[in-house]
């Protein structure tokens, strides 16, 4: 996918899609680098959540398990939750850029259309890894057992999944660009059922049968299971299922995203 073009005034070169992806990713990532405080702030919410929810869960379990075990179960769920919140809302940034005009300016550059989507979605990876790493480290003094290699694999799976969700969020943002509230309505009405039906917050084993069946069709379930297994320091078939669910989400998300950005009349 390399095209070369030369103009009379000032040779203008067209780079490859890959370097276009890198440039789009760089533009998005620079906003985080320039405002590291926003990243710090985004850490507060999950930390508060963890601090307030974990003790309750501990009580629910009848006090038979220690804090460490509760965290071991709960922390991966919180990290998946941060991923879902962050990546599913990211379309709002694109919608804002469509509204203010910056996206049109970028559409008018020779950047490849798939790169516009892929570069943006890949940007979701970096803050996610930082957030997850910090939250995990904070939990260590409270009895959380650390398995660095397993966690790294877990974050990679989560990152791939996040790219897919991010791309879907961008696609939704483009489709609903003229009626902003539709974006939020769809995002909100999908987010919570997906989260709850993944067993992220509370285990589904005690729930009714229909919920357990529904959870089998939720890709997030496989991600949560894989993360729990990895964060507990073990490896099994659940990890493979999680990796597969993440890969499918990424491929479908990017496919939908690229199609949407290529076909939309802005």
């Amino acid at each position: 996918m390399t095209a070369t073009a030369t103009t009379t005034a000032g040779a203008v070169r067209r780079a490859s899609t890959l370097s276009d992806v890198r440039l789009v990713w760089l533009r998005e990532t620079l906003t985080i680098v320039r405002d590291p405080f926003s990243l710090v702030f985004s850490l507060l919410q999950p930390l508060v959540f963890l601090a307030l929810f974990a003790p309750l869960l501990n009580g629910l379990a009848g006090g038979t398990v220690g804090t460490g075990t509760t965290l071991q179960f709960f922390l991966p769920g919180v990290i998946v939750m941060i991923t879902m919140f962050g990546t599913s809302m990211t379309g709002a940034n694109l919608q804002f850029e469509i509204m203010t005009g910056a996206f049109e300016r970028i559409l008018a550059t020779p950047l490849s259309r798939p790169a516009l989507m892929i570069g943006r979605a890949l940007k979701e990876l970096s803050p996610l890894v930082v957030q997850a790493a910090i939250i995990t480290l904070v939990a260590v003094p409270f009895g959380f057992q650390l398995f660095p290699v397993h966690i790294a694999v877990g974050l990679l799976i989560l990152g791939v999944f996040g790219v897919g969700v991010g791309a879907l969020s961008y696609a939704l943002a483009i489709v609903s660009r003229k009626t902003e509230w539709i974006f939020w309505m769809v995002q909100q009405s999908l987010l919570f059922p997906l989260l709850i039906l993944s067993g992220m917050m509370l285990p589904l084993e005690s729930g009714p049968e229909w919920m357990q069946i529904a959870s089998k069709f939720n890709p997030l379930t496989y991600i949560v299971d894989a993360e729990r297994m990895l964060f507990a320091g073990s490896v099994g078939v659940d990890v493979l299922w999680g990796a597969l669910a993440a890969a499918i989400t990424a491929v479908v998300g990017l496919w939908v995203g690229v199609r949407t950005v290529t076909r939309a009349d802005f």
């Binding site: 203008v12 533009r27 940034n93 910056a102 020779p110």
Partner: peptide, 29 residues
Amino acid sequence: AGVRARIGYIGQKDGGGHNYRVWDELRLQ
């Protein structure tokens, strides 16, 4: 894409991303 490589376009709305820095936008453009 060949057309876009040879022209400049200044649209009706703001070209610079509101949450981005002036220098980053210009350099990356």
